Computed example of a mutant assay.
Amino acid sequence: MDAMADAADRLCIDLPAPSSLKTQVSMFENGRRIPGQDYQTIFCEVYHSSRTDLGLCVESAPSQLESLPRLPTPQSLSPKASPGVLDYLKSVFVQHANAEPLVGSRFLVPAVQSQMPLIEELCKDADGPMRDDVVRVGARYSEFLGWLHQDTGDSREAMLWTNRALDYASELADPALSSYVFQRRSNIAAEAGQAGYAVGLANAALREERKLPNQVRAVALRARANAHAMLGHDDDCRRAFDEARTFADRAAEDGPSLAPYCSVAYIDMEAANSALQLHRPEDAVRTLEASLTRWPAEQQRDRGLCLARLATAYAQMEDVEAAYKTGQEAAAIAQATGSARILAELGRLQVHLARWSKLVEIAELNRTLGTMKGN
């Protein structure tokens, strides 16, 4: 019950008084009542597991993180897998991936999702080596679509499509691809506030860690570290980030990677975010300020996220002027890219600036953010 209370606090779920909670738990144990959706979410958090792993009745309370997406049924004759069709899908994927940091996720969701019925049709009849190629394309598109939905703030759709990517990866028996998708699921769960579930998914990503390329191993360790930071586990967080830096530093040993972005600098950036979770803003400021001096121009959306985190760090240090100026920069990028992740970070900034809300500058920032949120 103590663990349930801690989890409920993290998830912002109200629990009844201890005496009533004890009765509820007893009824669950005796099979007299099926846990509702909130209780199922809490149990998943406490045990770092999914509803399926815990044997809970998913049908009675559909999980936003475990359903499967429904695909439209094509009305025309089904196309067949061929090298030409696969080359087309691969080239379009590269174009979308290159465009995403510049134009933002919301404009790409319809374009990427429109390819999924075609991929699904190709999978129906493809066999032999050609099938592996089609399934791999399906995994990459599904994972990317999950990421696009995550960046637009739709955790449900993000997990739906990332689960689909894991299905494809499981058919291929590819440890690196499966690990990469598991850590993506961990990231989505963490951003949805389910830190315990996120730890479990990160652990799953590292189940066969000796078989993983260095960069994939590093991003999976980063996911574990981030989840531990959300749970307040400072030592576990530091340990995971130290390991992640070691493997990111060996990136030159990898061939083509699923995580080419994962450098030591990237790990340091993520460690700065975890430092904010653990109320160590000085550590975060040093890293984030240094990162911004060498930020690639084409990574505009991620630069906005970095600025929003830096603004939060300034606010934690009570540097109100720096927090305001940096927050305004981040807000402009959030507006241009439509990134819900930047906007969520700016929401965290607002909490830290609440006691200065009567200052003209902070009131102006709050108005800007309120307009962006539709308030």
Rank of each mutant, 00 (worst) to 15 (best):
Q75E: 06
G347Q: 08
F93K: 15
D38P: 03
L56F: 13
G232K: 07
D38H: 04
A198L: 10
C237L: 06
Q299E: 12
H228C: 11
L310M: 06
R250N: 15
N214D: 06
G138M: 01
A340M: 11
M159L: 09
Q37G: 09
S26K: 06
T23Q: 06
S357Q: 11
K22D: 02
F43N: 01
R367A: 15
R32S: 10
A81N: 09
Q115H: 09
S60A: 15
I42P: 03
L221Q: 12
N98R: 06
A165T: 15
A252W: 09
T41W: 06
R185Y: 14
P175F: 12
T23H: 05
Q113T: 05
E209P: 15
M130N: 01
A8G: 15
A334T: 08
R10Q: 11
A176R: 07
A3F: 13
E120C: 10
V264E: 12
K358T: 00
R303I: 02
A218D: 13
I333T: 10
G138V: 04
L15V: 07
G327C: 07
K325F: 00
G255A: 01
V285N: 03
L258S: 12
L359I: 08
L77D: 05
Y168A: 00
L68K: 14
K22M: 03
Y47N: 05
A354M: 05
A227E: 14
M159D: 12
A176W: 13
C44M: 15
C237E: 11
R106G: 05
V134T: 02
E321I: 03
V137Q: 04
A195D: 10
K358Q: 00
E345M: 04
A332Q: 11
P72R: 13
E45A: 10
R217C: 08
S91C: 08
D151F: 00
K373F: 01
K80D: 02
